[in-house]
Design a protein around this nucleic acid. Structure first.
Lengths: 228, 228, 228, 228
DNA sequence: GATGAATGAGGCTTCATTCAT
DNA sequence: TATGAATGAAGCCTCATTCAT
């Protein structure tokens, strides 16, 4: 381009640079939103702060997401719902014992989700679902139902193969889900849950829990019947 | 009634009624606050709505509690902190086996706390602790520390008597706490946690969990070592 | 009265004691109100705090004064308006020179009013008159007009006797009033007026000011004319 | 205009106008705030009314000033603190006699500050300092200390040159300050201070006061000693 | 007369969302 | 597209005044 620079050239140049970064915008906003939603919760996170952390202005946020609720849904899709398909495939192709699969399953969850910011979304939904019914319905359909189904399949596999005792899976899944959710919650609840001077070591905790679960699941004589 | 009424009787009677009403106010406000805090969370609960549900005006609330935070602390004291003393005594006087004590303990918790509104406070703290540091510190000192101590004592009792295997109690307590907290959370998280069409039956869930825990705790050969 | 004491007797006894103190009530309330009005201003003084300082309940305050404004008027009457009559008599009977009378006058003002809480009312009116027009009108009629008149008489006496130079008294009175008001203000303005580390010594200040005033008032050749 | 308009020109122009508007906002708000603070006092001025008088909404005010107190500080900086530097320079370069400097000084004060709204701030601080300690400390440091220092220098100059008699400057400054403050107060106190039918003519008042001051300051035999 | 519980209007401040540029 | 100034509804808390007792 020849020399006679003018303001319009500069503007055009700026516009070009802007457009080059344009595609990255939603991703940067989603990352910033994830961090802040997990840190402060949905209601307590200010739209302006999300924008600032993503390096854009408040107006730009609403250019990409029509409201704070839509931003949240996009965060859930990006970090949770979108991953169930590949995960299900992986579990279906697992070759070892069902006990190993369960252990693998929980550890994998920890590595890929539980230990990341994404786990904070679970904690968040538990407290804010009541105040934001539309978000609750969305989360229910996109995350909770598919997630439970995954665990159910692993347990059913163990029962079918004779490794696990027969059980009512509707409750059985919670033997697995409860410790996972609890760990996720405790990692994101600061002093609201755990004494500050005794933080939980996640790997130790997971192994302690899986040991317990497997004791309970293994096929053998029933435990002393509960006195109900 | 045959005795002769006079003005003094009437005045005394009136004053008594007035004072009875005054004495009832804090309790009514605390009950309304507990409901709303559990239903909506701390930040999302409006002071005016607490007052309305207690049948008084906005100003009256601040006559009894100097701020929303103080109201919350009072709710915690009324429903949680205040009960630890008698509970500890009860556990110390228990005569049966430690396995029975543990089962009794968890079931009692469910009857007296877990199944009541009070359990919602635990869920609430997990999400709002980060946004209200002073409340978090208060809750930590008044509820979390004493609660963990109670569980720890029960497990230690079983270890000392040879019923339970030796273990690192810092993690052991979570084998008990995690299912309790999870149940408390799931009962107060609406659709944020549990599928709406398959609600958790608490008693079944608790027995399922205690069975598992006791399998894990019983003194015997260690389980297959976790592959870490 | 014969023996059969009952609750009504006790009540009657209490009522008697109450009535014995009844006449003192308004005075105690006025004293408390003066203190607080001077300390905090009219708008910033809470009715309840006046009542508490007087040792009665909030309701009692409104029993004796129908509103906060009426309470203020009563304070002004008690502490300012009511004293002008005797003061005027005293000045009219003064025997010495007019210079001495002026010095006596200012020093007396300091002893009886300026150094007391009452002086704070003047400061108060200057700032709150605009927000409370009815109080302003009241104060104007009951205090400002009579007070100016007193000074004017002293100066006129000096002019008539040839001690003071002739002057426009409408402005002349301010040569006297300004330092008095300034002193009153500075004593009641805390750090709003005077540097905290150099408080004003009232007696030194008054003498310094009267010296200056008398220089200016004495009958003699006019000063270098102001260049207007 | 013959030159070819293009989009860039239009955009640049628009941005310029917008920014001109933005830059004007703080000034408009400060002007409105000054008026209202002087008229009603700090506590009695409602933030919303400041906004309305500046032609913006309540929210906009807090966009520029984080709280009512910060707004007030900005008003003080804009109208008082910010002017001391240039004023001190001006006084230091004055060439005439110290008597003339003093007269010039007081008249200049009247023209630039005393006769403007800014003088109302002084009155305001005297009454509200006690209720807003942080504002009091700010005003003390930014206005009172520097202001006194200015007067002190003028008097010291006269003493050094032999025009004025030696004196304790700590009290001497009040011979000058008192009439100035009194005038400022009386102009902004409405009927709280001055009889409505005899308003003070500031120039006459000032000259009357300066005449008096200079009589008192001139180097010569001491006045008749005060009888203390 | 005396009490103090109750009221509710009013003030400061926050923040999601809009829109002119 | 991108900006960020502007809006105004909503929430917490205060306090003069009322009134049943």
């Amino acid at each position: 381009m020849p020399t006679p620079f003018n303001l319009c050239d500069i503007a055009a140049n700026a516009r070009a640079k802007r457009e080059r970064r344009k595609d990255a915008r939603p991703g940067e906003l989603l990352a910033a939103a994830l961090e802040l939603f997990v840190e402060k919760g949905f209601a307590a996170t200010r739209a302006e702060e999300v924008a600032k952390r993503a390096g854009v202005s408040k107006g730009t946020l609403f250019l990409y997401f029509s409201s704070k609720e839509e931003l949240f849904k996009a965060v859930v899709r990006e970090n949770l719902s979108g991953r169930f398909v590949e995960w299900r495939l992986e579990l279906e192709q697992y070759q070892g014992s069902s006990a190993d699969l369960l252990r693998y399953c929980v550890n994998t969850w920890w590595e890929r989700l539980g230990s990341t910011q994404a786990a904070g979304i679970s904690k968040l939904m538990m407290s804010e679902a009541g105040n934001f019914p539309e978000l609750a319905a969305f989360y229910q359909a996109e995350v909770i139902i598919p997630g439970r189904e995954l665990i159910r399949r692993v347990l059913q596999r163990g029962i079918d193969s004779g490794e696990f005792r027969p059980m009512d899976l509707t409750y059985g899944v919670y033997n697995v889900l409860a410790p996972m959710l609890f760990l996720a919650i405790s990692k994101h609840s600061g002093s609201g849950c755990m004494p500050a001077n005794e933080p939980l070591d996640p790997v130790k905790y997971i192994n302690s829990q899986v040991d317990n679960i497997l004791y309970g699941l293994r096929a053998r004589a029933a435990p002393a019947p509960s006195p109900t």
